[in-house]
Each structure stands twice: as C-alpha cells, then as structure tokens.
C-alpha cells in the first residue's frame, strides 16, 4: 500500500500535493468541480494588508510550454479574507490551509501575519517575498538577504504558526537567500516563484503584457525549479515546498527526489482544473513503477 503522507513542520498532510497560490483562488471555484479535501492542503491567493485590484490588463501571455502572468496580487485584503473567504472555505475544505502573504514593507508583512495568526484554519504561513509583478515590493525583499532576514524575523515575532519563506528564482545564486531565511528563523522554504519573462505582440510590436514583464510559469520552468530545490536542500536543513512547472505525478516524484517534502502545483491547474486530483490518483501507480512504498523515504533521494 503506497504511503503518500508527508509532514511539514508538524503539519501532517495526507499527500504532498498543494495547489500553488494564485492558481486556486480561495478554493471554492475548484470545490464546485471536485472534493478539494483530497488535496494535501492548498496555498490561497496571495493576500496583502489592504485590498488590491492589481495591474492593468492584458495580464496574461502564452509561451512555449508555459505562460506569463502579471496579475499584481489582486486580492480583497486580509480582513475580508478572514471575515468572508475563510468562513466560506470552511464549508468545503476541512483541512488546514496555507496562507500566502505578500507585502510592501516589513511592518506590513508583520501586521498581515499577525491578523492571520489567530485563524485556526491556517496551518502554515507562506511569506511571499518574491512576487515579480508589483513595483517597490515583494521581489525587492526577496532578492536581498537582508530584506529576507528582516521580513522573516518580523513575521516570526508575531505568529506561532510555521513560517515558510517563498523565494524568487530571479537571482544569481539562490543559496544565500535560503540561508538568510533559515538564519532569521524560517521554519521552511518555498520555491520557486515565477521567472521574469516577456512576450512581444507582432501585430502591435509591443509587449503583450500591459505591465511589460510578468512571471513565467508552466512545465517549461520545471528544470530550473528542480535545480534550485536541489541546491537549497544541500545548503539548508529546512523542509522545502518545491514548485515550478509540476504537472504530473512523475514531476512530483522528481521534485521530492530533488529535496522537496511537499509539492505545489501551479499553472497546471489553470489548463486542467482537475490536474491535482489526477496527480494524486496517479501517484501510487508511479510509486509502484519505481519501487517506492513511502514518499517520505524519497525526499532528497537524488543527493
């Protein structure tokens, strides 16, 4: 019998599959399609202290084997997430959810996390210091070890929940950034966020995306994500949530061999809304094919 269970800083998951933030809303669009309780957990839409409309459209472009988005962290703000989205989610999701939190200053991250700290439904906080789509925020923290350290310390001071820092791949070397998060007290690392990318429309001869650049995701980025998860696993002794281009059960196994304890699935949800339950259903077969009885046993197995 295949054992899919994994544990993230004390949070036990029935399986390692977690829809990634920004591809799953606050869950209930998907709850109309399938019982989302089959998931390990899910990471809700990146949420900030204040409501945000985000960037002008077009926000989406296609790429070979992937896509670019420049949504710009559209969200209703932390207070409405707590008073409206979480109660609505409670009716269809009975597991702990991952709260994905963004911000524009150290204080803002801390205040937002302090608000969500009281919520029993939240099992873990994923601090997004790596959104490429907002100016003067997020990614500017995530590409600087001092910024990561400051945000991590501030958030840890206001919450007792496990804090995972979500890193940007848009750096020369990911290791010092993961190390900065670890030294500042992070409980785990999430990676990778999207890669900065661009497409140009041949008819208008201008960038497709109104914001010009956006975050590149989808199967095309899987090798970059695997490489970075592998590097961080070697350098930092913290659990890793691995993500980037995962769309099949085989990708999940590969990501766990690289060093991930759990795996987020992002862009695949947008193309096939049933991608996550299909991956979960396929995992036992893929495990049997490669002689794996427990997924816990293969974490970091490629090292």
């Amino acid at each position: 019998m295949a054992d899919l269970k994994v544990t993230l800083s004390g949070l036990e998951l029935d399986n390692p599959i977690i829809p990634a933030s920004g591809t799953f809303g606050y869950g209930y669009e998907f709850a109309e399609l399938y019982d989302i309780n089959v998931l390990g957990s899910f990471s809700f839409k990146g949420t900030t202290l204040e409501p945000r409309f985000g960037n002008p459209t077009p926000r989406i472009a296609e790429t070979p084997s992937g896509m670019i988005n420049a949504v710009g962290m559209q969200n209703p703000g932390i207070d409405r997430v707590i008073t409206e989205e979480l109660p609505r989610l409670k009716r269809c999701f009975h597991k702990k959810v991952i709260a994905n939190i963004g911000g524009f200053s150290v204080d803002e991250y801390a205040e937002c996390c302090a608000h969500i700290d009281k919520e029993d439904q939240v099992g873990l906080i994923e601090v997004n210091v790596s959104c490429p789509n907002v100016h003067n925020g997020c990614m500017s923290f995530g590409t600087d070890p001092l910024g990561i350290s400051a945000v991590t310390k501030a958030v840890k001071a206001v919450t007792s929940k496990p804090v995972y820092v979500k890193l940007s791949p848009n750096v020369t070397d990911i290791v010092p950034l993961a190390a900065a998060a670890a030294e500042a007290g992070a409980d785990g690392i999430s990676l990778i966020n999207t890669l900065l990318g661009m497409r140009i429309d041949l008819r208008t001869k201008k960038p497709v995306i109104a914001n010009k650049m956006g975050g590149f995701s989808g199967s095309a980025i899987l090798p970059v994500a695997l490489r970075m998860v592998y590097q961080v696993y070697e350098a930092v002794k913290l659990p890793i949530i691995g993500m980037g281009g995962v769309s099949t059960a085989r990708d999940v196994v590969e990501m766990m061999l690289a060093g991930a304890t759990a795996v987020e699935v992002g862009a695949a949800n947008l193309v096939d809304p049933w991608a996550c339950p299909k991956i979960i259903a396929d995992l036992p077969g893929v495990m049997a094919q490669y002689g794996i009885t427990s997924l816990k046993d293969i974490i970091g197995g490629a090292h």
Binding site: T57, P58, N69, V71, Q74, N269, P273
Partner: peptide, 15 residues
C-alpha cells in the same frame, strides 16, 4: 480579455 484559466481561478482577466 486575455485569459489564463477561463473559470475564475487566476485573476488574469479582471476588469
């Protein structure tokens, strides 16, 4: 509008 998912998940086509 240019869309990502088409079913309300990604916020790619907001107005």
């Amino acid at each position: 509008e240019r869309m990502g998912c088409g079913f309300g998940a990604c916020m790619g086509c907001s107005v």
